[in-house]
């Protein structure tokens, strides 16, 4: 066993409790981040579904002249956000209502006057289907004088947007707190090992061991803790996911590459925590 790998596991034997604490806090940090990430991912999926159906519908006043309508269609079609635009006349609207709502067909059968307004249906390009863009288009279309009402499923879009931002925020804040605790406990382990091995490190410095060589076992140790923490987090996450999947609804899980990246992220977190706390000791070398 080489010097570096032997020493990297020294801390595990020397202070098992502190080591376990470091691994657990990294695990909690990554677990929290990944759970909220999963919420984010699933909201993103729902949003993508909803977005495909997002359209702005402008209902026109009955008195709107055909000339006015064609100006509106032409101008709105020129908006950079607009993908396609369709004019639905009063008659077409009635026809559609009859087909779509066949169970109420008698309601529409003996009308003296068509109560449905003409409308234009505006589909937006991908990338412009979020609440801010949709609202913006709706606002501009509403300025045309003969537009009576605008509908675009605003509550839905806003609520989902809000939930997604909230899950991101919570994930970062709670995950960040655990990551902070992980940093402190990794630093404390390193300080303990530094003290217990100060004689050895003194000798290494004296005989000309390179700084990187002295630091390497500590960095490997931090990386290993991070990876172990990430694997633990992954196990917890999988268990949580399976439970939700069975009891609640079909959810989307991370792609394998994302999981691998998560484990690497854990390792890097541990290694960085080690490096940060080593820096103090390194400076005096």
């Amino acid at each position: 066993m080489s010097y570096t790998s032997r020493e990297a596991f020294f801390a595990f034997r020397r202070s098992p409790l502190l080591t376990a604490l470091s691994i657990l806090t990294i695990a909690f940090a990554l677990y929290t981040l990944s759970v909220f990430g999963l919420v984010w991912l699933n909201i993103e999926r729902v949003l993508a579904d909803v977005e495909e159906r997002v359209e702005v519908v402008a209902y026109l006043e009955d008195g709107a002249e055909p000339g006015d309508t064609s100006v509106l269609v032409r101008e709105v079609a020129a908006y950079p956000e607009v993908d396609s635009i369709a004019y639905v006349s009063k008659d077409a609207a009635l026809e559609r209502a009859r087909t779509d709502l066949s169970e109420y067909s008698e309601l529409y059968s003996d009308l003296e006057e068509n109560p449905l307004p003409a409308s234009i249906e505006i589909a937006l390009k991908p990338g412009y289907r979020r609440s801010a863009d949709v609202e913006d288009v709706a606002r501009r279309v509403a300025r045309f004088p003969f537009v009576e009402e605008i509908k675009y499923g605003e509550e839905w879009v806003e609520k989902l947007d809000f939930l997604q931002n909230l899950s991101l925020f919570l994930g970062v804040v709670v995950g960040g707190i655990f990551a902070g605790i992980a940093f402190v406990s990794i630093g404390a382990t390193i300080n303990m090992v530094m003290i217990s091995r100060s004689e050895e490190i003194e000798i290494m410095k004296m005989v000309g061991a390179a700084t990187g060589f002295i630091a390497r076992p500590f960095v490997i140790e931090g990386f290993t803790k991070g990876v172990l923490g990430a694997v633990l987090a992954l196990a917890l996450l999988t268990a949580t996911f399976e439970t939700l999947q069975q009891r609640v609804l079909t959810l989307e899980f991370y792609a394998p590459i994302q999981l691998v990246l998560g484990v690497v992220l854990g390792g890097c977190l541990g290694a960085i925590a080690s490096l940060l706390s080593l820096r103090r000791h390194l400076r005096s070398w």
Partner: peptide
């Protein structure tokens, strides 16, 4: 330079009063 100090020390042998053995 700081990184050269280990290289210099490899060319020196140092012995202390208190032995400093592991």
């Amino acid at each position: 330079k700081r990184r050269e100090i280990p290289l210099l020390r490899r060319r020196l042998g140092v012995v202390f009063q208190d032995f400093r053995l592991l």
